[in-house]
């Protein structure tokens, strides 16, 4: 495991092996081996792009669904959480402290699709006692990226200070 490589990739998943080698001081072969190892160990799970979908006419609708469940004897929340995670419409599943038990982020094409999915799939699951669906109305920041910032560089071209 190499935390420095992870930190670099977390910031820029497209950073080249050669650049990672330059920054870490490792050889390129070594960097490749480390990354492969971390993939194999399940430490690196994927490389995604941060997209501002709202810039498109047709973008996804997301909802944050809080779910209360009756935990199963012996299995706790594990069983239901894993089942929910299997749905294509589900982007993330978290176990929460506080009032709700699970937080599920659902992503669909339309509001109706989300409603239908929550009503027909999530709410009716065995051991789910209640759901609270909150639609995402606007995204301001996603995966550390401030989606609001569009200011151009106003520093000028050259300076001596």
């Amino acid at each position: 495991m190499n935390v420095q490589i992870l930190k670099l990739l977390a910031k820029d998943a497209r950073m080249s092996i050669s650049d990672i080698a330059t920054v870490t001081g490792l050889g390129e072969a070594e960097v490749s081996a480390e990354i492969n190892e971390m993939k194999k160990d399940g430490l690196i799970r994927g490389f995604r792009t941060v997209i501002d979908w709202e810039k498109l006419d047709e973008f996804y609708v997301s909802a944050l669904v809080e779910i209360k469940v009756t935990p199963k004897p012996g299995l706790g929340f594990e069983d239901i959480a894993k089942k929910i995670a299997k749905f294509h419409e589900v982007e993330s599943v978290y176990l929460l402290s506080g009032d709700s038990d699970l937080c599920v982020i659902v992503k669909c094409k339309t509001f109706q699709d989300v409603s239908r999915f929550v009503a027909k799939e999530l709410a009716v699951m065995e051991s789910v006692t209640s759901t609270k669906t909150q639609f995402v109305m606007r995204r301001y920041k996603e995966l550390d990226v401030d989606l609001e910032v569009t200011d151009p560089d106003d520093r000028g071209i050259v300076s001596s200070c």
Partner: peptide, 8 residues
């Protein structure tokens, strides 16, 4: 530019 001595 790589000309400015001011943090981005």
């Amino acid at each position: 530019s790589l000309g400015v001595g001011e943090p981005d």
